[in-house]
Design a protein around this nucleic acid. Sequence first.
DNA 1: CAGTGGTCTAGACCACATG
DNA 2: ATGTGGTCTAGACCACTGG
Lengths: 266, 266
Amino acid sequence: MKKQLNIDSVDSDDLERIIQIANVPYRSKGERALWLQIYDRLAEACINGPLESGARLPGENHMAELFSVSRLTMRKALSKLQQEGQLQARKGVGIFVRQRRTRYVIDDDLRFSQSLEANASEIDTKTLELTRAPASREAIVALGMGAVSEVIRMVRLRIVEGEPIYLTSKEFPADRFPRFEEAFSPNQSVTDVYRAHGIPRYTREETRITGGFAHRHEADALGLTHRTPLMRVSSVNLDPEGRPIEFNFGRWPLSAVELVVNQRRS
Amino acid sequence: MKKQLNIDSVDSDDLERIIQIANVPYRSKGERALWLQIYDRLAEACINGPLESGARLPGENHMAELFSVSRLTMRKALSKLQQEGQLQARKGVGIFVRQRRTRYVIDDDLRFSQSLEANASEIDTKTLELTRAPASREAIVALGMGAVSEVIRMVRLRIVEGEPIYLTSKEFPADRFPRFEEAFSPNQSVTDVYRAHGIPRYTREETRITGGFAHRHEADALGLTHRTPLMRVSSVNLDPEGRPIEFNFGRWPLSAVELVVNQRRS
DNA sequence: CAGTGGTCTAGACCACATG
DNA sequence: ATGTGGTCTAGACCACTGG
């Protein structure tokens, strides 16, 4: 009964909590800048504190008044929280609490969903795109394909407890998987596709990890603010004969996950 | 003869270049925000363009005037460039170009310096700290040590072509390396230390990669702006018998490097 | 339509580093 | 003492979203 049915107003309990943390007196500015003190309090409230994921914050003008600062100062605190992925602002709508307190551990040896299932109770996958198209430049290099080769391109989004956590674009050589779509559709499982084409297991060749800042479509898909820092990982799967069968390109919010790469030799 | 001997003034050629890109007319604000257009131009100049690493930019007030915007708008563009690690501001001093255009590739199987040497011509290592101390919490877990075990703690900074790129803190179990310091000092080489203690080679057990935002001392050491996004990697080395001999914790600016994890089974 | 977040201005004070 | 970047204010206009 905490949340009201229409989202368009601030939960009164949450408002109480904001007022409470806003009324704490500030320490001296020389010690820590005003906007950083506000940031500290809000971050605390988002991570450990009483502000739940999905909660809506009061408007910027209102918040600035509550914290007794100018709107710009308020915005600076809020924008840092957005940059960290803890809040998400939607123009014309409002500001919402985004971050889960936990950091998800992903074991790179396993498939992503298996890794997450061990940690999270509720995980959802949306397939945003499944098409046949010419291979991207990256995939051509990674898969060792000809320049005009056709690939099956798949874009998926992993959503954990309501929060988009992982955006992945995969490309598969089309000639290896003539019956991709029909094998995929029953369980939305890539492993099923592999099996249906006589590939009982696969190995991971190499993983490349870089950091960067969210492009437009990445931010949109992950529900992040534009230009938020990201981790990007690209990898290649090989069939038992060592031929590349999948190029994977994944991104997640900088602070959302911990990638574990297991390097013990078998 | 491009750079003057005292750094405290802006290179006149660089000033010319800034003026040139500042005088390009703006597109409509609706299309792209003013501060983003300024950001675009400066980023272009830092990455592809004529602004060299180490170059000093004119002051914020001056730049704001050149670009015909308020100081706040100018600051917003500059601060995004700082966040990306392309610029570095020093209070009371000025703003300097920081980023190299290249992204350094680090092969996780090799030692860091070997990886870099293949890419960069000029690499320098500074040992910031080399002490014996009680193990950190992280190291106790990673190395499987007792709670009061002593470690040799080493903090090093890798500087590539004048830019700090990689900050690493290592901890070694003290009882395994009684003659650490004397074995290390000739070549500043950890491999030498291993050999001197009868460890001809080592293996990497596991690598954990997370993202985050620079703490105070991390930002200071890497010459970054406070709270700049970072990549952090922790790993454990094992001796041939499988006992942990080193806990490593490294950080680099988000966009500086590309980590390559090789997972081919031998 | 009203309210939201996004942008921008002009002006001010501060702490800091350098000469 | 000067100039630097860092912070903060008060006020304004815009584009977008929702009822």
